[in-house]
Design a protein around this nucleic acid. Structure first.
Length: 507
RNA sequence: UCCUCGGUAGCUCAGUUGGUUAGAGCACUUGACUGUUAAUCAGGGGGUCGUUGGUUCGAGCCCAACCCGGGGAGCCA
């Protein structure tokens, strides 16, 4: 007989099921053992009762340790207090594999320790929920494009040059010739779009920058659609429809997961509203505090943040003192000591974070107020901007100097390139970069010279402008940044099963 | 590459102006208790204080260099 999935238990209430999985947690009493089983599809408390199981099987249940594998059979009982809403009263249990000293305990762990045990960390609740949301996004992305007649294509990973000339790439050896891991499939996407009309790539991307921030990975997954006969406006319309669609898919399919990671859903629901679209020039004025948004100045928002941070530092310090005083009292029970200690450590961590913000915010305020038109936005400038709006923000018409060589110049005002960056709300910043591509052969050639790129490497690309050059546009979405925003994670490293980043190649 | 914070038990962290045998909780283990939900009670084992060198009668603590990690800048999705 086939075993059931915990995720399907709702259909089995009142009946007997067989389950196979792992022990997530165990609590034992004299004649009762509570085992929380996880099987990948969900969580379920299994209750072992000595009187129904008999001594032999009961002792087996009692001996199970964290992350041991076991089989069981029992009746499903609906119980809203339990995680998943059900529990199973065991009539049979069998150990499949006994674990010894599982490294990840129910206590808090540091990031470094967890990253070193990433292969096991993936089993924990939070990571389980994040990976399922990532899966929903991946499937929703494919479905969105497939439903609209896009053809999925795979761009090459080995490339013979730094195709945009900007990023630092990973060098490798290709039969004795230097080669680089792809930083973008975009140029190949353009070629394919001229063959298929509408395409998208979905593949790994490599950047060798030694970035140590919460939004950078050395290896990440990028989705890059490219459409023939498409201008910047149509491109932006598509981006908006696309993000609305994939975020809605998560809201429809992953309520349990969002709840588990305590992600408030109201900000995500705002994607149904029209996205804010502002030209670069206007965005600069907003960042500098020269232009108000709904009566709010960006600089005031930052100053309020700073005041708030300082207040919370004061409060946390008071709390820490109080808890230290409590801990210093004699004759505390062990449980009380543990409680105060963990609360104290949590407070100290909050204090560290707040103090770091206190150091950063003044720099961000000064960098925002003195922002020089013509530059690209920094991470903090993006954060400032997103704090003023509730929907994703599309910033378009960028100074052509800061954008890639293939970006189309605005016919009416050649200062601007017809690029668009999409900033995710709640401080997340850039998740999409895209734009309309240059179609004019002469302009393109002069741009390649201007960027000091090797012309011969782009001959094939220039062919696209020699034979049937048409308006076309596309964009690139960073999957991990999207997952980070949707899950409201502090760092992209938790959005991918095995992150590759500066200083991290294993496991 | 630069700025900044950090490295003490398996894990999370205390450790006062440098002072004798370096602590707590969790985890593990033993026993008691209990329809329990990371924190019921009592006992037990567990340490080359990141590395190297220096100052000192004496260094977890001070100094220097280096290694590793967190965050930020730059760069980007």
């Amino acid at each position: 007989m086939k075993t059931q999935a915990i995720g399907d238990l709702a259909q089995w209430v009142g009946r007997s099921v067989e389950l196979q999985g792992w022990v997530m947690a165990r609590r034992s009493s004299k004649d009762l053992v509570f085992l929380v089983m996880r099987d990948g599809s969900g969580l379920c408390q299994c209750v072992a009762d000595r009187s129904t199981l008999g001594d032999a099987m009961y002792n087996e249940a009692e001996a199970l340790t964290q992350e041991s594998a076991f089989y069981c059979r029992g009746e499903v009982v609906a119980d809203p207090r339990q995680i998943g809403g059900h529990e199973v009263r065991l009539s049979e249990i069998r150990t499949l594999h006994l674990s010894k000293d599982y490294p990840i305990t129910p206590k808090e762990h540091g990031v470094d320790f967890l990253m070193d045990h990433r292969h096991l960390w993936l089993r924990s609740k939070r990571q389980w929920a994040i990976m399922r949301i990532r899966n929903t996004l991946i499937m929703a992305i494919h479905r969105f494009f497939q439903d609209r007649g896009f053809v999925q294509m795979d761009a090459p990973i080995f490339t013979d040059n730094a195709c945009e000339g900007t990023s630092t790439l990973f060098a490798t050896d290709f039969y004795g010739h230097p080669a680089y891991l792809s930083q973008s499939g975009q140029l190949y996407g353009e070629a394919m779009a001229m063959a298929m009309g509408k395409i998208y790539t979905f593949g790994p991307t490599f950047r060798a920058e030694k970035s140590k921030t919460r939004r950078h990975l050395s290896e990440f997954w990028m989705i890059e659609p490219e459409m023939a006969f498409c201008d910047l406006r149509q491109n932006m319309d598509l981006i908006e429809e696309f993000l609305r669609d994939v975020v809605s898919a998560v809201l429809e399919r992953n309520r349990l997961e969002l709840e588990l990671i305590e992600r408030p859903i109201e900000p995500l629901q705002k994607v149904t509203q029209p996205f804010v679209r502002i030209p670069y020039e206007e965005a600069v004025q907003i960042i500098r505090g020269e232009r108000l948004v709904n009566g709010q100045s960006a600089l005031d928002v930052l100053r309020d943040d700073l005041a708030q941070v300082r207040r919370s530092i004061e409060e946390t310090r008071v709390e820490i003192n109080e808890r230290e005083a409590k801990l210093a009292q004699p004759s505390l029970k062990k449980g009380e000591i543990g409680h105060h200690q963990s609360q104290l450590q949590a407070a100290r961590q909050r204090l560290d974070t707040a103090e770091e913000q206190e150091r950063n915010l003044p720099q961000w305020i000064s960098s925002a107020s003195s922002f020089e038109a013509g530059n690209d936005f920094g991470g903090s400038d993006e954060t400032v901007l997103t704090r003023l709006f509730e929907t994703p923000i599309m910033v378009y018409n960028w100074p052509h100097e800061v954008k890639a060589f293939y970006m189309k110049r605005d016919e009416n005002d050649p200062r601007w390139a017809k690029g668009v960056d999409v900033l995710a709300p709640e401080g997340y910043g850039e998740i999409v970069g895209g734009g309309e591509r240059e179609t004019n052969l002469e302009w393109l050639v002069s741009k390649i010279h201007e960027h000091e790129l090797p012309m011969e490497a782009f001959e094939w690309y220039l062919d696209l402008r020699r034979y049937g050059s048409v308006p076309h546009s596309g964009f690139g979405l960073g999957l991990e940044r999207l997952v980070a925003w949707v899950c409201k994670l502090p760092h992209v490293r938790e959005t991918i099963p095995f992150p590759r980043m500066y200083g991290r190649i294993a496991p």
